[in-house]
Design a protein around this nucleic acid. Structure first.
Lengths: 208, 208
DNA sequence: TAGATTGTTAATCGATTAACAATC
DNA sequence: TAGATTGTTAATCGATTAACAATC
């Protein structure tokens, strides 16, 4: 398989969502041009992105909505169930654990962990909050593949190492700290996003 | 000013955080090499990134921690207070509104908005949840510059347009939908991040 | 001075876009 | 056939990395 540029995967997710919507609207066929218009992306980029994985369309016709959607689902592993734990039972951790769209997309939060004695044993929804000491056993016993890290920056590295040791296969890191582990990590750094946004605002004011 | 690559800004935020930590550790000087080691980034990239904004270091010596930190603070607009509203008073909206690190970094959530009648008038912490109809007046009266969008995908475009019309200068979009407005937008699409993560996991399993 | 580290230029690498033959 | 749209190659653009003279 040819090497796939990193940004392609995120865009495939966006294409998939758009296809699901088109399906909901009852459309049978679509084209790179239509997707491009809806998503504010160049049509040739969409075709190029798809071409890494094969030819899914018919020349002169376009793409069949449901079959393309199905193929992207396979490629992205959306069909599978992914069992996850949330580490850090603060506001953010609870919000992620309770986020309905994630459940609808095949992600299931099956456990919450913290180190704050006052939280251990309490329940959030149907989930009991457990101590980090019990993480490894829980991961093994429950086929947990993903850890969602919602701890303060200062605890991030330690928690990440514990997650890796416990045997999860990937980490979604919401903390504002670079973590070093040898399993795949995706960072969701909304504090950096917010600062990037304010920078753009300042620049705009300055030049206009 | 030379055109600055988009990724540079996000990295400056990361450098800034690291400098603040070094300051906390009592370090007076640092170098691109030390920052690189801590952050898992190439030293020459750090120097290159900084060079877009000027020469902040001394050859043979390195960078003075507090003065470089101060300069980045200015560049990124971290010194300023940024007043924001959260649109969408669900779990996620509340988690963001109550997120302490944001407050510490100069962002202040001064209002929450929703369209669900059952939520309007209720309080979250000291914030009353208001109806979207009152957004424009509130933004004007309270010098609100940023809207943080935490609504379901289907309401995202509408809410974004309302925010733009109300006069905010930028939008932080947590919804899983592309929004089209003419003010700056930063997207925090953690559902896409999660799928990108699972793709990496699958790929890894496949090849190893 | 000798050693260290910056700031900057040039080279490389990677991603996006344009263009068009293939083909439905 | 004529019109439309794909899949792919080549060209462009943008970002990262290497290398090194400048200089503390």
């Amino acid at each position: 398989m040819e090497k796939i540029p990193k940004p392609v995967i995120r865009r495939l997710v966006v294409y998939y969502r758009c296809l699901e919507r088109l399906k909901g609207e009852g459309k049978e066929y679509t084209s790179s041009k239509e997707l491009a218009r809806r998503l504010g992306i160049k049509a040739c980029q969409i075709r190029k992105d798809l071409s890494y994985f094969g030819g899914f369309g018919k020349r002169g016709v376009g793409y069949k909505v449901d079959s393309l959607s199905e193929r992207l689902k396979e490629i992205l592993g959306i069909g599978q169930k992914w069992r996850a734990v949330v580490i850090g039972a603060g506001n953010l951790g609870k919000a992620i654990a309770g986020h309905k769209p994630l459940q609808q997309q095949g992600f299931e939060v099956v456990g919450m962990f913290d180190i704050d004695g006052r939280k251990i044993g309490k329940k959030f929804r149907e989930l009991e909050i457990m101590h980090m000491n019990d993480l490894e056993k829980f991961v093994k016993d429950n086929n947990v593949r993903i850890a969602i890290l919602c701890v303060p920056a200062d605890s991030a590295q330690e928690a990440a190492e514990a997650a890796e040791k416990a045997g999860v296969e990937g980490i979604l890191n919401f903390s504002a700290r670079v973590i070093k582990v040898s399993i795949p990590v995706e960072n969701v750094d909304f504090s950096a996003s917010l600062k990037s946004l304010t920078f753009q605002i300042i620049k705009r004011k300055g030049s206009s």
